[in-house]
Simulated scan of single mutants.
Amino acid sequence: MTHAPTLTAERTDLLSTLALHRGFLRHTVRGLSDEQAVARPTVSVLCPGGLIKHVMEMEHAWIRFVQGDDAGVGMPTTEEGMRAAQREHEQQFELLPGETLASVLARYDEVAAETERVIAAVPSLDTSYALPAAPWFEPGARWSVRRVLLHLIAETAQHAGHADIIRETIDGQKTMG
């Protein structure tokens, strides 16, 4: 008989903090139409729906990293791979044909549930993995599961702030204050 993993206080705190900031981000798009979700009312290329999509994709890539797959956080090794990765990165910040705000939010819920399952099951938050070679990582650096969670919290909080500014510009709605 196997038992479900028990969340430690630290894991609970980290996951709860991540969930809080996911909630702030999700709150910024509450009541927006798909047209408003792709609006870019500032000089930035960012839009509310694209920010949620990017944060969801980023979280998914880092949770794959925690499972031993660094493909989503590394740098391609060929020129063609770099061009494709750049296109994929840019597309993370927009809703593509066939994508709706509702579909992106549903996928974000799936990624959040996956994150919670993976973090509950990892043997230790101290387990670390080598970061792939990329200019944005220190050569030879390793990140623990704990460091990945802290990164996810910071990224989600930062982009929730971006989304809040954009939402206020769209319709005057203040979502975080």
Rank of each mutant, 00 (worst) to 15 (best):
S33H: 06
T42Y: 10
T17A: 12
L15H: 01
L20G: 04
H21V: 14
R30I: 13
L15N: 13
S16F: 05
G23T: 08
T17E: 07
L25N: 05
L32Q: 01
E35N: 05
S16P: 00
S44T: 15
F24G: 04
L46E: 03
R40F: 01
D34P: 02
D34Y: 07
S44P: 14
E35H: 07
P41I: 15
H21K: 06
E35K: 12
E35V: 14
L32V: 11
L25G: 06
H21I: 10
V29H: 06
G23N: 08
L46I: 12
L18E: 05
C47Q: 15
T42A: 09
T42G: 05
L18A: 08
E35Q: 11
L15G: 01
V29E: 00
Q36Y: 02
F24N: 12
A39Q: 14
V45R: 13
V29N: 06
L32W: 01
G23D: 04
S33V: 04
C47W: 11
V38Q: 06
R26Q: 15
A19F: 09
G31C: 08
R40W: 00
R26E: 12
G23K: 07
T42S: 07
R22D: 01
L46Q: 08
A39I: 14
L32N: 00
L25P: 01
C47Y: 06
Q36T: 01
S16Q: 01
R22F: 05
L46N: 10
E35C: 03
G31E: 01
S16T: 15
V29C: 08
F24E: 03
V29Y: 03
S44H: 09
Q36V: 00
C47E: 10
V43T: 15
T17S: 00
Q36W: 00
L18N: 00
H27P: 00
R30T: 14
L46W: 10
S16N: 14
D34S: 14
R40E: 04
L25V: 09
R22N: 08
F24W: 14
G31Y: 07
V38H: 05
L32K: 08
R26S: 12
R22C: 04
T28D: 01
T17F: 00
S33A: 10
R40A: 06
A39M: 13
G31L: 12
E35Y: 13
L32H: 05
